[in-house]
Amino acid sequence: MTTADLHTLTGAYALHALSDREAKDFARHLDICDACAQEVRELQETAARLALAAAEAPPADFRARVMAAIPEVRQLPPLVPDSPEAGAAQRVGRWRLWNRRLPQLVLAACLAVAVVAVGVAVDAEHQVSQQRSRTAQAEQQAATLSQLLVAPDATYHTGKLVGGGSSTVVASQQLGQAAFVYHDLPTLPNSKVYEIWYSRGGVMVPAGLLGSAQASGATLLHGSPSGAAGVGVTVEPAGGSPRPTTSPILLTALPGA
């Protein structure tokens, strides 16, 4: 490979696209060619900046401009050398074409970084939105629970669960709300949950689920306690059941129901 040919390899060297032998030959060339050395440094700095690119929202016409430019980009012809001389000539032409198309490759890298960055930004925004929703729900539940605990007609009934733990059912017919306050519940396997039920006319109606991540806490029951004779708790498969599949570990009457 001639010295003139070596001058065309700066882009490939900067992006580590040369073979080991070609890289060694070009490294020796850099020791005596200040122009190539400077160009390689600039290309490597550009590649580093691309790797650290900050996420930015693409302009509104970004996709349209990219799609419009695609027909203008020519594909590389197949490399089928018929002879060693032809193969060498094609390799030289390939590296020259590589250097001419380096700006297009940099643009493609920018597009890839932008697409990934936008995807990460969207995912992060989705996670923030979910966290805000959970926080709002927790705040609403805390406010409702506070109102329930001080309601003039609030009733309290405490009981112990079979297998360990205790609970207090707080209900207000006036507010149409009930809560289940629990302490020291035994940990369940991941395949099981505690399910809470209203007893209405001898039928157990689902009123909420408790995981076992927290041994103590409080949860509002789904639905009004009006017309319910009591509250029960069973251990059910993860996700809950429409009807109890195990014997109750707690049955608590609702005074005034």
Rank of each mutant, 00 (worst) to 15 (best):
M1L: 12
T2G: 06
T8M: 09
T10G: 07
Y13R: 11
D25A: 13
D25F: 07
A27S: 15
H29I: 00
C36D: 02
A37W: 05
E39L: 09
V40I: 03
R41W: 00
R41C: 00
Q44S: 02
A48T: 00
A51L: 00
L52T: 02
A53V: 08
E56L: 11
E56M: 11
A57E: 15
P58A: 13
P59G: 00
R63M: 10
R65W: 06
P71D: 00
V73T: 10
Q75R: 10
L79H: 13
V80F: 14
P81I: 01
A86I: 03
A89E: 14
G93V: 00
R94T: 01
W95A: 04
N99D: 13
N99L: 13
L105G: 11
L107S: 15
A109G: 04
C110Y: 13
A112S: 13
A112W: 10
V113A: 15
V113C: 12
V115T: 07
V118Q: 15
V120L: 15
A124C: 03
Q130Y: 09
R132C: 04
A138Q: 14
Q140C: 07
A143K: 05
Q147I: 05
L148Q: 06
L148Y: 02
D153G: 06
A154F: 03
T155L: 06
H157C: 01
H157S: 07
K160Q: 15
G164Q: 13
T168R: 14
T168C: 08
A171M: 06
G176I: 01
G176N: 03
Q177R: 06
A179V: 00
H183K: 12
P186K: 11
L188S: 06
N190L: 11
S191N: 00
K192P: 04
W197N: 02
G201L: 12
M204T: 01
A207R: 01
G208Q: 04
Q214H: 12
Q214S: 12
L220N: 03
L221P: 05
L221N: 06
S226R: 09
V231F: 05
V231G: 11
T234R: 04
V235T: 12
V235S: 07
E236T: 12
S241F: 01
T245L: 12
I249A: 05
I249H: 04
I249L: 09
L251G: 01
A253C: 04
A257I: 03
